[in-house]
């Protein structure tokens, strides 16, 4: 066992750089996904078809084709058109587009679930469409969408492990290196999985704090489940499922966000 720990200590610099690659993919992917989610999410609920139809098509396309297909497309196909992308950029693009398409549905659903009266009151005050969306509707939709977006962000983090397939030296790759040096699968992969778990859990904690803040601004009570709970939402419809740690009370079980 002490051999394992010696190997672990020796491998720490590599593991650290692996975590760094994983974090780069995650942060880049989340930022891109968020931008895409806002653009496509707003586009998909536009009354004008030149905005709505392309948004809908892009959402269905990037949700419907697998993440790995999209990654390979950037990695193998783009160079054939003379666009050689760095592996990290390929990863960020594929992750951002894939999860951005899912997140667009979250954004759309959250905006739609802001009460109609809020839109009407803003109209009655003659606020411009942009100001209405930005100052009145968005802050309220934001509080609704945080748990679902956090779930997608965790899924995106898990998705970054595909980078291993295009031979990037991310956390998964370095985990496997540790297996080879220690010859102990259980130990090495235990370290790797705990690494992913910790990153994911930190993301959940951050999201819970964000949600608490957003709800306080709206004068609502703290979200149920508390700061440390992990809540699961439906990936495709982004409908919230009840808080994992809060017993009973099946609020919003099915299709709360349409």
């Amino acid at each position: 066992m002490s051999d394992n720990f010696d190997a672990l200590i020796a491998a720490l610099p590599d593991l650290r750089s692996g975590v760094f690659i994983t974090l780069q993919l995650t942060v880049g992917g989340v930022v891109l996904a968020f931008v895409i989610a806002i653009v496509l999410g707003l586009g998909a609920r536009s009354p004008r078809w030149p905005a709505r139809v392309p948004s809908r098509i892009l959402i269905e396309f990037f949700r419907g084709t697998s993440l790995l297909v999209q990654l390979f497309w950037f990695f193998y196909v783009m160079p054939l058109f003379g666009i050689k992308l760095d592996a990290l950029l390929c990863g960020v693009l594929a992750l951002g587009l894939n999860y951005g398409a899912y997140a667009a549905e979250v954004v759309r659903g959250a905006i739609n679930s802001v009460p109609k009266g809020q839109w009407e009151a803003a109209t009655a005050l003659s606020l411009s469409p942009v100001r209405k969306l930005r100052k009145i509707i968005w802050p309220q939709a934001w509080a609704i969408m945080i748990p679902s977006l956090a779930n997608l962000a965790v899924m995106l983090l898990k998705g970054t492990a595909v980078a291993y397939i295009i031979l990037m030296h991310d956390l998964t790759w370095e985990t496997d290196q540790l297996r080879q040096t220690t010859g102990n699968t259980f130990f090495a992969y235990g370290v790797g999985m705990i690494g992913y778990f910790l990153i994911a859990y930190l993301m959940v904690l951050g999201a819970n704090a964000l949600e608490r803040h957003a709800k306080r601004r709206l004068g609502q009570g703290p979200p149920k489940g508390g700061l440390f709970s992990v809540r699961i939402t439906d990936k495709a419809t982004a409908a919230p499922m009840p808080a994992a740690n809060a017993g009973g009370g099946g609020a919003g079980a099915g299709g709360g966000v349409v």
Binding site: P115, A121, L125, S126, R131, K135, I136, L218, Q220
Partner: peptide
């Protein structure tokens, strides 16, 4: 409106000053 429709993300005064300032 029947349902008041105050903006929950703004204070009482901000609710009142939002449109005069920005419209």
């Amino acid at each position: 409106f029947q349902q008041f429709n105050l903006f929950p993300n703004m204070s009482v005064l901000e609710n009142i000053t939002e449109a005069p300032v920005h419209v």
